[in-house]
Design a protein around this nucleic acid. Sequence first.
DNA 1: TAAATAGTCTCCTTGCGTAG
DNA 2: CTACGCAAGGAGACTATTTA
Length: 300
Amino acid sequence: MPKIEYKSIKFQQKSLELINLVNQVVEEYQAQGYELTLRQAYYQLVARGYIPNNERSYKNIGNLINDGRLAGLIDWHSITDRTRNLRSNSHWDNPADVIASARYSYLLNKWDGQPNYVEVWVEKDALVDIVGQACRPLDTPYFSCRGYTSQSEMWSAAQRFISQDYRDNRVIIHLGDHDPSGIDMTRDIQERLQMFGADVYVKRVALTMNQIGTYNPPPNPAKITDSRASKYIDEYGNESWELDALEPQVITDLITNEVTALRNDEIYRSVCDSEERGKDELKMIERNYDKAVAFLESEE
DNA sequence: TAAATAGTCTCCTTGCGTAG
DNA sequence: CTACGCAAGGAGACTATTTA
């Protein structure tokens, strides 16, 4: 885990304390197998009440984390930039290797034959890793909206749901902040999908007033400059809450419960069984690759 | 004078209010 | 009626100015 000093920086006590808090959050999340983004680290500090929730505060913590890394106080692996990535081709050492990775990625669609089709959508990309770790074992597609979903993705999603029309129900499990815009996004998703002709039920499972009552996350003042604020305040009062304040395990359990409730377990298990058989066959080829090639050569 | 903070840039959106 | 500015939501990096 590299902490490398490229620059000597004499931080003030207050900044050192903040850096320690960042490292603390990073360690907690790494222990659970999650990678943090800058945005997520920021929201954790907000959710724990250490820093205010505004744009200036976010930028300040970004600068501090940057300096902290350059000064060798924060691990370079601890925070990832998910928006900028190198693209390249995949490579293998030999043909047997590609069969090994084929076996690994060989998955049957666990929603084949199911009465329902389900996707999980989350408002902020910062939480997509947590949502992903919940969704992958359930073989359930997941999507991060990044605020209001783009028109192009909304249209694509509508086409996807329309292609699932033969099923009984199509459902989006939606998770977002409890603030004027966050609440409005659930409505927006439902309305635009409807406009594009998709028959989908958008179920907002977080953050709800119920969960706020149960887990008691720290409140933020609702932004009154938000054009949706007055409607929100009429309904919920002048406080808002970040989805990030929920523990990853709480989010994971929530998603797991919501998705499995929409799944027929008998059908699910039978698909899992045939997947296992397929993997066994690939394993056989992988282990006896040379023999298989020799055999096929002798057949020619 | 170095650290902290302010401000600007890239890029995708919705929605409200006002100007034309 | 449409166009536009600016408020909000999302993820980042970079430079300039102020402050201790």
